[in-house]
Design a protein around this nucleic acid. Sequence first.
DNA 1: CCTACCGATCGGTAGG
DNA 2: CCTACCGATCGGTAGG
Lengths: 205, 205
Amino acid sequence: MGRNSGSRHDGTSLPVTRDVVKATAIRLFSERGYPVIGMRDLSEAVGILPGSLYAHIDSKEALLLDIVKSGVENFTEALTPIVAMDLPGSERLRMALRAHMEVLAVNLDQTRVTFHQWHYLTGERHDQMVGARQEYEDVFRSLLRDGSRDGSLHPRAERKVTALTIIGALGSATEWFTPTGSSSPQQLAEAIGDLVLSGLSAERD
Amino acid sequence: MGRNSGSRHDGTSLPVTRDVVKATAIRLFSERGYPVIGMRDLSEAVGILPGSLYAHIDSKEALLLDIVKSGVENFTEALTPIVAMDLPGSERLRMALRAHMEVLAVNLDQTRVTFHQWHYLTGERHDQMVGARQEYEDVFRSLLRDGSRDGSLHPRAERKVTALTIIGALGSATEWFTPTGSSSPQQLAEAIGDLVLSGLSAERD
DNA sequence: CCTACCGATCGGTAGG
DNA sequence: CCTACCGATCGGTAGG
């Protein structure tokens, strides 16, 4: 029970591929954190023996890097075309917030790992993701800069602080967003957009 | 070298007390994460042998709980009097943001552990902190409610989402705030306050 | 706070 | 993907 290839606890079975290992790792790392998940936890959830995992992956940390790298790609692929659009900065910012929440909602577990577990990478793998994270910050900084220039945004504080605050708010959404909640990702993006664009003090829309 | 009680790598020495163990743990847990810090890392940093730690603490997890509980207290002690003040919601919200950033700046490492490592607690210890976190969320929800009633705040979205977004932004500040940076905690709180209160789209102050 | 040690678990491998 | 196993490290303890 649980030892045969591809057998799952719901009784169905599927071939154990690299993608199955990765998807299972995403779920476990998201739920309990990368460092506390052992290769034995992962192999049991997948339905093979611990040593057999290494037919699919090189190492635990290489698996984490793979998850985090493709997790970042989900966001850059969604946001890059928006940034390049010929629209006011304020509109592109709103679209970027919506795109972020939609990607987050579709890949919630992977986004959690991407935003909150990447720093367990070491050495060169770590440096790689520091760069990727910086690029994502730059996306928002450039939207703020464009909006200031075209007159659609009026950030009162340093753009860097503003960008980090917005990204922080988005990153925290991985912790409280629930797919079964009453609000859709689009509605949540609208709410965050209202807060960031209009603030709380006036009733102007 | 490093084995004598209280000897530190800078050559000075101090008595090893429970507070020294706690302060050292705060630094290590903050820098590298609770699960990856072993008791041997901690004992070495403190300057005693691994088993000797248990003269000062009951267990690794009890140490984490102690850190996280007092970390939460730092915030509730600073915010409770502000919430009780007889002022418009908008002003109390601004004061709350400033108080949060000031506590965060003074106890940066402990705040990092408090906000980002508490979920490694298990069982009853875990449930305890879920409650404490909820109380902190309620502080901001009640400020938003009061502000709506007295007319000083006009949240466009659900108060819950707004509160979570604000708390998320504040929580993320632990990741990018640097004590040596160009902006003081007060300036950063002002910037976040401007963003939350006034938004980005208008030039009204 | 040290000495000496415990059983359990860790990521990973050789050879099939 | 399994069998059988490796050395290293884990949190923690008894007795001083």
